[in-house]
């Protein structure tokens, strides 16, 4: 068999394998993608909450995308405390001003950034939240101060539709 012939055969087999592999990949993708959030789940991205009944010093918990969102109406003392913390004392430095644009209202995802438990309200060494699973302490701005959690509790996208209604998402 001449060398040229061998090359052509190699090319034919390589091309067949390559085209076949593309097809296998294209077939597998739908089987994987079907587990991603479907169109109806994606459509439920926002929820509106009436906060007129929340008094200062109280927290309500609402469900958003299957997860708890803490909405706390903070007292003046709490705001002062949250804003006085020095950034260098923080494990994950973030200003309270950036976390709560309207200082009276703290809206955050009530999910510990360690392994996903829901922290307890007004517990822990920093007077904020305390996660019972592995002992992470958060301050009144939801920032991690002590324990295994790596980052502050997440602030979701939200806006005040009017003075009494918050739209999350």
């Amino acid at each position: 068999m001449s060398e040229k012939k061998t090359n052509r055969r190699d090319f034919l087999f390589t091309a067949t394998y390559a085209v076949g592999a593309v097809g296998v990949g294209a077939t597998i993708w739908p089987m994987i993608d079907q587990m991603n959030p479907d169109a109806s789940v994606k459509a439920l991205a926002s929820t509106e909450v009436d906060v007129s009944a929340v008094n200062p010093g109280k927290t309500i918990t609402v469900l958003w995308r299957g997860k708890p969102v803490f909405i706390r109406r903070r007292t003046q003392d709490e705001i002062a405390e949250a804003r006085s913390v020095k950034l260098e004392d923080l494990k994950h430095p973030e200003k309270d001003e950036d976390r709560a644009a309207n200082p009276e209202w703290l809206v955050m995802l009530g999910v510990c950034t360690h392994l996903g438990c829901v922290p307890l309200d007004q517990k822990g060494e920093y007077n904020g939240w305390f996660c019972p699973c592995h002992g992470s302490h958060y301050d009144i701005s939801g920032r991690i101060r002590k324990g295994p959690a790596p980052t502050n509790m997440e602030i979701p996208k939200y806006e005040f539709v009017n003075a009494n209604t918050i739209k999350i998402g």
């Binding site: 089987m31 993608d33 109806s40």
Partner: peptide
């Protein structure tokens, strides 16, 4: 119907 409409590639599968 949910599979046919909303699930990604559900109709295909």
């Amino acid at each position: 119907e949910h599979i046919m409409r909303d699930v990604n590639y559900g109709w295909l599968i």
